[in-house]
Amino acid sequence: MACKTQGVQFNGTKEQEAALKEAIALLKDTKGSLMPIMQKAQEIYGYLPIEVQTMISDETGIPLEKIYGVATFYAQFALQPKGKYQISVCLGTACYVKGSGDIFHKLEEILGITNGECTPDGKFSLDSCRCVGACGLAPVMMVNGDVYGRLTTNDIHDILAKYE
């Protein structure tokens, strides 16, 4: 089976590890502390790769699978880091009926990644989102702070090229 551990190389530092271990030591004897520990870990690392989840498992004795189950249940947890350029495509109703699904698929195709993932070079990450409040410009996507509206699939190449 394919293991979802490929992708961006994990570059955790000793300082991050120490900070996580300190947070775990503080929280782990409290009932229901898994979520706060995971939130803290995401705050420290920006995402929860297998290396980080394993540290949480080893320190708390909570099975890795349980941590992974929580991480994949809640949208707030990310398994992949965000890219230098974070792309979000609105899949809200107005954008969707205007074809944002096609925009999203085009991005998946070009970047070779899917929802929630990051390209191996760490440049682009792709997320779907719900309504950015610019329905008049539908379909809409954002790259970091920049909003692009009234898109067609033909526009995607040129937009990405701006960030190469």
Binding site: E65, I67, Y68, G69
Partner: peptide, 19 residues
């Protein structure tokens, strides 16, 4: 605890960590 529910809603699947 090496198997458990992962993902959510219709995508929910019993499996191990990181597939």
């Amino acid at each position: 605890g090496v198997i458990g529910p992962n993902e959510r809603g219709f995508a929910t699947i019993i499996g191990s960590a990181f597939d």
